[in-house]
Design a protein around this nucleic acid. Structure first.
Length: 528
RNA sequence: GGCCCCAUCGUCUAGCGGCCCAGGAUACCGCCCUCUCAAGGCGGAGACACGGGUUCGAGUCCCGUUGGGGCUACCA
């Protein structure tokens, strides 16, 4: 029955607008997108908004922004944040689901269920108390036609609607065509009579996604493993309807960096303080890399980064995100990890998706981000850095930025590091910590003397890289210091930081006037 | 609890019965480069969860154990 290979490949990403985009979800979107592109098929975006109680206003905007930022363009979809409601919103397709539900009832494959939520809750409680498996007991499964008609009338009079449940065959077994785990079979009796149509007239996931996937001619529904247990139900519904079966693609879970549990901001029930504690521990265990940790510390963002917008704000590049996400449950090749989007499209194959879950590795993501930053032409990088510099209150002269950017370019891991890497070039330098000023084996008095000597020498030096180098090396020799013993105090004095680019370039670009000012300031700090 | 699924270095993975005393990447350690930090180069340590089978031969197939995970809603 499953014969989707001959059809044009069509995949979709169908999130619920219940919150912002999570990396796990977007990984599904990426895989679906890659498979469509690989086959020169279509990729669609659909909004599964049938659960109106969980709807979140900011969700749609964030979804569109996330897709656009990552470059995951869809061939068919709701068309942007301001599009009028259309077929790509499930809430707009109520009648279609009702029609299919009724058809199933007519075919005897589904039935109306009049059980109250109270009865269901009671049933569940009783089952739990007796340590029996929970599940619907089939109370309304075999009601006579007369009884059904009667109750239907009663419900209607009361302005209520019954739910529709699928009548799972009591015997036999069902086989699921699954590209990741291969065909697998399960006994039908292990599936319960799930609700297809809710009493508000909207479908549950089981009916909604299935009708849409069919109507939209989706050949490969991709979704997380959490849908594996109900996949047989979906196959049975297809069979009852006589619809062609798609090939399911169940994607493995994305786990926390520790490998314990599903990826989430913090462990369940942990508050902000505990979140900070957790992050400090993860950093100490080197599960959170330095640049990212510094960013989270600066912003008091205490918890794992999990939302797409968080990664964007922290200064990750979309190409790094895509590359990294592709490595979660898949591989771009035996001897490499870096691949362009084009390469990924060419190489992607749903049959190579792993079955086992994978832990999210912030180290590797940060490494890839640094790698992609290094590939960026300086002008492009400069443009991407601007928002971060301006947010830090730095007035940026574009030419000046382009002058100094090469000095820090290859050291940058996150775009958000720009201010601390560049502020002493572009604006004021932070006040140095006096304890950082002395070079190796130097006391305060020696350091003062060295800085004063540097001040005097640089005041008269030719202002070229060669001139500055000659001046500084001569000064060191004259002071009886090793080069580094002079350079480090000068570095700290003029940048306010222990780490900075090469000293000659740094001196040169900061400019004579500001260098001299900052040297004086540092001498003052050591006065006491 | 019940049902289902998964299992290669700390992490992501290559491996689809002999090419593997297991390859790459990251993280870690050391050396080189060097004025600091990066980047880069070179090197090091580091894995087939365990126990049974099948086979001339198993990381690769089967069973069990252990461990991990998912589902168990008128949520998706």
């Amino acid at each position: 029955m499953s014969n989707s290979t001959s059809r044009r490949v069509r995949t979709r990403y169908a999130p619920s607008p219940t919150g912002r985009q999570h990396v796990g979800g977007i990984r599904s979107a990426l895989f679906a997108w890659l498979w469509a592109r690989h086959n020169e098929g279509d990729f669609l975006l659909r909004i599964e908004d049938t659960d109106q109680t969980r709807f979140r206003e900011d969700a749609l905007q964030d979804l569109f922004e996330s897709m656009a930022w990552l470059g995951l363009a869809y061939d068919e979809g709701p068309d942007g944040p301001d599009a009028p409601p259309n077929d790509f919103f499930q809430t707009q397709r109520g009648p279609r689901y009702q029609e299919v539900a009724e058809e199933l009832v007519e075919r005897g494959a589904a039935y109306y269920c009049f059980c109250s939520e109270a009865r269901l809750a009671e049933l569940r409680e009783r089952q739990q108390a007796r340590k029996q498996p929970t599940g619907y007991d089939g109370h309304c499964r075999d009601l006579s036609a007369e009884t059904v008609a009667e109750r239907l009338a009663t419900f209607e009079a009361e302005g209520k609607r019954p739910v529709v449940r699928f009548k799972v065959p009591r015997d036999g077994s069902t086989t699921v065509p699954d590209a990741v785990r291969g065909e697998w079979t399960i006994e039908n009796k292990q599936i319960e009579d799930m609700i297809l149509l809710k009493s508000d007239g909207l479908p549950t996931y089981h009916l909604g996604h299935l009708v849409d996937d069919h109507d939209m001619r989706i050949t490969h529904p991709m979704r997380g493993v959490e849908y594996v247990p109900t996949a047989p139900l979906h196959v049975m519904i297809h069979e009852a309807l006589g619809w062609e079966l798609p090939t399911y693609v169940h994607l493995p879970l994305v786990l926390n960096p520790t490998g314990e549990g599903k990826m989430s901001k913090r462990k369940q029930g942990l508050d902000e303080a505990a979140g900070e504690q957790m992050m400090r521990e993860l950093h100490a265990e080197r599960l959170i890399p330095d640049a990212l940790f510094a960013y989270q510390e600066r912003n008091a963002n205490w918890g794992l980064l999990t939302m797409v917008h968080e990664f964007r704000e922290a200064g990750f590049l979309p190409e790094a995100m895509l590359n990294y996400l592709a490595l979660l449950g898949w591989s771009v090749g035996a001897d490499k990890d870096i691949a362009t989007v084009e390469e990924m499209i060419q190489l992607f194959d749903i049959h190579n998706i792993k079955k086992s879950p994978s832990a999210f590795d912030y180290n590797k993501l940060e490494y890839l981000n640094g790698w992609y930053i290094r590939q960026l032409p300086p002008k492009v990088l400069a443009t991407k850095l601007l928002p971060y510099l301006e947010a830090a209150g730095l007035e940026v002269d574009h030419d000046k930025l382009l002058d100094v950017l090469p000095l820090v370019h290859e050291r940058m891991k996150l775009l958000s590091e720009a201010p601390e890497l560049l502020d002493f070039f572009l604006g004021e330098a932070p006040l140095p910590d006096p304890a950082d000023l002395p070079g190796k084996k130097m006391d305060n008095a020696q350091t003062r003397q060295a800085l004063q000597a540097a001040h005097q020498a640089l005041a008269n030096s030719a202002w070229t890289l060669e001139g500055i180098e000659a001046t500084m090396r001569e000064t060191a020799t004259a002071q009886g210091l090793k080069a580094g013993q002079l350079f480090q105090p000068v570095r700290v004095a003029i940048t306010g930081r222990k780490f900075a680019p090469g000293i000659f370039e740094t001196v040169y670009h900061i400019g004579r006037e500001r260098v001299l000012e900052r040297l004086e300031r540092a001498v003052g700090l050591l006065a006491a």
